[in-house]
C-alpha cells in the first residue's frame, strides 16, 4: 500500500517537474539556449536531493550516486590539468619527444616513480614499494609541520597569554582574565598525567564548562552556516528556477 503510494508520489512529482520545465521553456521564462537547461538540471538535482527529507527513495539514490561519480570525474580532470599536465606531462614527457625549447626536467622522474609506486599497493609481491611513496609524503609532512606548527599556531596562541592582564578598561581586563582562566583550565582538563582529583579536578571542571560553551558556540555556528546554504538553495529554486521572487 505504502509502496504504491510512494510510486504515485514519485510519478506525480516527475510529471509536475516536467510540465513546469516545458511551460517555462515554451513561454521563454527560461532561456533554452542560454542557461535555461542548466537551471532546470540544477533544480532537478536539488529537488532529487531534498526528496530524502520525505524518505530514502530511488530518485535520491540516483542523484546521490550521480553526484559521487561527477565529483570523482571532476577531481580526476582537475588533478590532470592542475598537477600532472604542467608538472609531469609538459615538464618531462613532452620535451623528451618534441623540441619545445625547454630541457626535460629529469628530476620529475623521482616523484613520478614514487607516485606510480603507490599503485603497487594492489600487488601482493611489490606492495612494499608503495611504502617508499608514503614515507616520502609522511616524512615531508612531519618535517614541514614541526616548525610551522611551532611558529604559526603554538607561539601565536601562547603570545597573547603573556600580555599584561590590565588592558586599560575594567571589562577588558575581566575578559583577558577569563581567557587566561579558560586556557589554563582546559589545558588542565586535557592533562591526564595527574588524576583529576582535588584542586586539579576542580580546575578541570571549569575547563569542561569552557569546552561546553565552545562546543555550543561551534554547534550554533555550524547550524547557521547550514541554514544559509538552505536559504541559498531556496533562493535558487524560487528565484532562478521558478522566478517567483525577485
Amino acid at each position: 500500500m505504502n509502496k504504491s503510494r510512494d510510486i504515485y508520489i514519485l510519478f506525480f512529482i516527475l510529471i509536475a517537474f516536467f510540465i513546469v520545465s516545458v511551460v517555462y521553456l515554451s513561454f521563454g521564462w527560461l532561456d533554452i539556449w542560454g542557461d535555461g537547461l542548466g537551471i532546470i538540471t540544477a533544480a532537478a538535482v536539488t529537488l532529487a536531493m531534498y526528496s530524502f527529507l520525505y524518505k530514502d527513495n530511488p530518485v535520491f539514490k540516483i542523484a546521490e550516486n550521480l553526484f559521487v561519480g561527477v565529483a570523482m570525474g571532476y577531481s580526476i580532470i582537475i588533478v590532470w590539468f592542475n598537477i600532472l599536465k604542467p608538472d609531469v606531462f609538459e615538464a618531462l614527457i613532452v620535451p623528451v619527444f618534441k623540441d619545445t625549447g625547454k630541457a626535460p626536467q629529469y628530476t620529475v622522474i623521482v616523484p613520478t616513480l614514487l607516485g606510480l609506486f603507490m599503485f603497487l599497493r594492489f600487488s601482493s609481491k611489490l606492495s612494499w614499494l608503495s611504502r617508499w611513496s608514503f614515507a616520502f609524503i609522511v616524512g615531508m609532512g612531519a618535517g614541514i609541520a614541526i616548525p610551522n606548527f611551532i611558529n604559526a599556531i603554538l607561539l601565536r596562541q601562547l603570545e597573547p597569554m603573556f600580555a599584561p592582564l590590565y588592558t586599560g578598561s575594567f571589562w577588558g581586563t575581566i575578559n583577558t582574565l577569563l581567557v587566561l582562566i579558560g586556557v589554563v583550565s582546559v589545558l588542565f582538563y586535557f592533562f591526564f598525567s595527574l588524576e583529576h582529583k582535588g584542586v586539579i579536578g576542580g580546575v578541570s571542571v571549569i575547563g569542561i564548562w569552557f569546552l561546553m560553551i565552545a562546543f555550543g558556540a561551534s554547534f550554533g555556528y555550524t547550524v547557521m552556516a547550514r541554514m544559509s546554504l538552505l536559504i541559498g538553495r531556496m533562493q535558487f529554486l524560487l528565484k532562478d528556477w521558478l522566478g517567483i521572487i525577485q
Binding site: 596562541q157 597569554m161 577569563l178 581567557v179 587566561l180 582562566i181 579558560g182 586556557v183 589554563v184 583550565s185 582546559v186 589545558l187 586535557f190 575547563g207 569552557f210 569546552l211 560553551i213 565552545a214 558556540a217 561551534s218
Partner: peptide
C-alpha cells in the same frame, strides 16, 4: 570563552 577553549 570560545576563544579560550579553542586556544587551549
Amino acid at each position: 570563552p570560545n576563544l579560550a577553549a579553542k586556544r587551549a
